[in-house]
Design a binder for these strands. Structure first.
Lengths: 151, 151
DNA sequence: CACTTTCATGCAATAAAATTGCAAATGGCT
DNA sequence: AGCCATTTGCAATTTTATTGCATGAAAGTG
């Protein structure tokens, strides 16, 4: 993980569709050398995966909501169970257990209110161990990146 | 945006490093047809970008924190200004203005506590228009995907 | 219903890109 | 300086992406 690897990671986090020759030129290496570095970054797991990122609006998911959850019983196993249940929901794109006032936080990608209604119905029914939950809607997105800052 | 396009998007959201021929076989098209569809999905902006997703731990960013922010003055322009400032911080990976109790929510990828300290120092200094803020740490990640559910 | 237009498809040829073997070079370490 | 382990660049090879073109399907029109 030297300077060149870092630069490659930075570039690939921005745009992984660039050709190897192109990247090689930018970091000042030959294509073969560059390719071997990238392959190693994959093998060692630094690069987890390469994915297509969709435009939410054009994919029919305009609405974004954040739900903070307070559980009835807070034990480790209960938190885990709740997260597992939430994770099964396709609309749930992020599910965390957190420190502080609340126990968990969910980030949702929704099509409309009906979908939210149906989802909360499923996750927060009477027998669900959820004491309370607060729903907030994302009004404006100032930043949203998959990039992990390096160095 | 027919069934085949949807399937392609689903596949590409999972793994965009697969070869065109491979994808073509999976959706039951010839490579040329498949390629043209994917290209169109790019051109029309449904596919926003293709990126490498790193393993946070192996990239040296283990800690994840969520900060909810309440501003002093809540006006549109003040919220926008705060988001812009927050967005400039590399450790801030998501920055939203939200409805409800608080005005904004930040998601952070941190190396250590010192980094958090330095960041809060910068964002929430006296003259910053931030009335209060609450920091929560992510204890466990139940789900974290870039995929947008389709259909 | 016949006709036209438009668009997606598959095939085959071509261009571009990735991948490999190998010899040279580089970078620690002692 | 000398040794070992690793990385590099070149050139050949393989794989993959890309394009032109003719066919076929679907949709609209008179």
């Amino acid at each position: 993980m030297d300077k060149i690897d870092s630069k490659l990671l930075r570039l690939l986090q921005e745009d992984a569709s660039r050709t190897n020759a192109d990247l090689a030129a930018e970091v000042g290496l030959s294509p073969s050398s560059c390719l071997r570095r990238i392959r190693r970054l994959h093998q060692t797991g630094v690069i987890d995966r390469v994915v297509a990122v969709l435009n939410p609006a054009k994919a029919g998911r305009t609405m974004k909501a954040i739900i903070t959850v307070e559980l009835e019983r807070h034990g480790e196993q209960f938190v885990r169970r709740f997260l597992d249940t939430a994770a099964k929901e396709p609309a749930v794109v992020q599910a965390y257990s957190v420190s502080g006032e609340t126990d968990a936080l969910l980030m949702l990608r929704l099509k409309d209110m009906d979908e939210l209604d149906a989802l909360t119905e499923r996750l927060f029914r009477e027998e669900s161990n959820v004491a309370r939950y607060y729903t907030a809607f994302v009004i404006r997105t100032g930043k949203e990146t998959t990039e992990i800052p390096l160095g």
